[in-house]
Design a protein around this nucleic acid. Structure first.
Length: 491
RNA sequence: GUCUCCUUCGUCUAGUGGUUAGGACAACGGGUUUUCAUCCCGUCAACGCGGGUUCGAUCCCCGCAGGAGAUGCCA
């Protein structure tokens, strides 16, 4: 039987790292085993649903280059793939369970449930959950509730005896006593929508899903789902619960640890290559030494057996390292295209750039490339070209081992070497040699000459290489800034 | 509280009944370099604890501890 897996997110927020990792694992497993990857939208929570989240799901997957074989937009033989369009189906199956005696109608109000819960907590009762108040209602009692117009929910009748086991590819057998399974979970809500448990089981069965790969937080409900499959008389798919993604403090990764939504990462200038490579390595490895994987590599070599069991901490620094690596791997013209929107957003480049602007960006990319961890780093790196904020503190111009007098000399003599050399079309390496000579003559380290020039020209002690900076700025502007710096040092 | 799962450097991980326990990121140090960065070299750093089994356990078994997750008309 060929593999069919699915990613089934609920559009109640932006796609985040954990979800994307689940999607990636499902996708790579499908591809590497010649199976199908299905996308299903589990939008049964009508209160938290948002259109924006749904759009973000599509945007994120396509940004990553993940195509689904069946699902919304592309369709497929088991559609619709959006659960809110399948409600009648769930209602039908829920009623079937009631008829079989495996489920029952419950008329308890949320208020009553809340008070039951409260009491259990106060009494530190060993068993928590629904008290099965409506489990054995008579027809008359039911009719009475119906007459009052109370909309019931449908609950699964969980056996109180025995135990239920399911097999997980990674974990092995997991067994739970039935009495420990949350008593009689709701299958169908009073608004007619199914809960996760019902819809998920029905759809996985109907859509022929062979492997259920989802986060480990679902392990405790595994036995419940098995009970549901059994109640319907269906075969149980293979389970594979994925290790959770944690923050630095060992808690489930969340916003307080840093960015978690893919949209954030995209806006900061992370590359899909880096995200895919790093995120896949959280909880999975091929051999412990191979570091770099392209999407295409993973589509071939991903194996279930290499998935780790323990939860993994998400390391933002390692992601940065991967991202820097992939930025450096980019061809200059490609990188120029990628960087452009960030410069536009900063207001440095116009929305419809002319040739001069595009040339400037192209020129910028080369020296900036190996200094970027994220694409948005282009903004601070190039700020000196677009915003001129002179350094007025004199000590900033003075390199280690230099003093004010020598620095003044270095700036005036250095700048004349520099400017006349450049105007005369001299080789940069020749000019550089002369500047080194100057530093010797002034009994300074090389930087004693370069630092004042750098601060004068780039308004910072840290910058792109001096000659690149000048070339970006133009000779005229360079000279202007040097003259200004000389004045600052004279004051 | 109850249930379930997990446990190799700070982090992601490799690995085996006998290994100098390997790699990567981070950190630190050095080299190249006009600063920064890149690049190169190096250093630091781990088998949670206690019992067994065994000639020998990081690896097998049992406890314990710690961590996480679940316990919703959320998924």
């Amino acid at each position: 039987m060929s593999v069919r897996v699915r990613y089934a997110p609920s559009p109640t927020g932006l796609q985040h790292i954990g979800g994307v990792r689940t999607a990636l694992f499902n996708y790579f497993f499908a591809k590497s085993s010649g199976g199908k990857f299905i996308l299903r939208v589990e939008d049964t929570d009508r209160e938290r649903y948002s259109d924006e989240s749904l759009q973000d799901l599509y945007d994120t997957l396509s940004w990553l280059g993940i195509k689904w074989d069946e699902g919304p937009v592309v369709g497929g033989p088991y559609g619709p793939y959006i659960q809110s369009e399948r409600t009648e189906l769930y209602q039908k199956y829920a009623k079937e369970l009631v008829e079989k005696g495996k489920a029952y109608y419950c008329y308890c109000s949320p208020e009553r449930l809340e008070s039951v819960r409260k009491e259990q907590i106060e009494k530190k009762s060993e068993y928590q959950g629904y008290d099965r108040h409506c489990a054995n209602l008579t027809e008359e009692e039911r009719a009475e509730y119906e007459r009052k117009g109370i909309k019931p929910v449908i609950r699964l009748r969980v056996p109180t005896e025995g135990k239920t086991t399911f097999h997980d590819v990674l974990m092995g057998d997991i067994t739970r006593r039935n009495r420990d399974i949350s008593p009689d979970p709701i299958l169908l809500k009073s608004d007619g929508f199914p809960t996760y448990h019902l819809a998920n089981v029905i759809d996985d069965h109907l859509m022929g899903i062979t492997h259920i790969m989802r986060a480990q937080e679902w392990i405790p409900s595994g036995p419940l789902h098995v009970l549901l499959y059994q109640a319907f008389g269906w075969d149980i798919p293979t389970y594979c619960h994925l290790p959770m993604v944690m923050g630095k403090d060992g808690q489930k990764l969340s916003k307080r640890h840093g960015s978690t939504s893919l949209r954030d990462f995209r806006e900061k200038g992370y590359l899909p290559e880096a995200i895919i490579n790093y995120v896949t390595l959280v909880g999975w490895s091929l051999d412990g030494s191979t570091e770099f994987f392209s999407r295409e590599d993973l589509e071939k070599c991903f194996k279930l057996e290499n998935i780790h069991k323990a939860p993994a901490v998400f390391d933002y620094k390692k992601l940065d390292w991967f991202n820097g690596y992939y930025i450096r791997e980019k061809a200059e013209d490609e990188l120029a295209v990628l960087v452009l929107p960030f410069l536009q957003k900063a207001g440095y480049i116009s929305q419809s750039p002319d040739k001069d602007e595009l040339d400037l960006v192209a020129k910028l990319v080369k020296p900036a490339r190996e200094r970027m961890k994220v694409l948005s780093d282009i903004v601070p790196l190039s700020a000196f070209v677009f915003e001129d904020v002179p350094v007025v503190q004199r000590e900033m111009y003075i390199a280690k081992g230099a003093d004010l007098e020598k620095t003044k000399k270095a700036l005036s003599e250095g700048s004349s070497i520099l400017l006349s050399g450049l105007k005369g079309g001299k080789e940069e390496s020749a000019i550089e040699e002369e500047l080194v000579e100057l530093s010797k003559a002034l009994e300074l380290k090389v930087n004693g000459v370069f630092q004042p020039l750098r601060v004068a020209i780039t308004n910072s002690t840290v910058s792109l290489p001096l000659f690149d900076s000048i070339s970006l700025l133009g000779l005229e502007e360079t000279e202007k800034r040097i003259r200004r710096a000389e004045k600052i040092l004279e004051e």
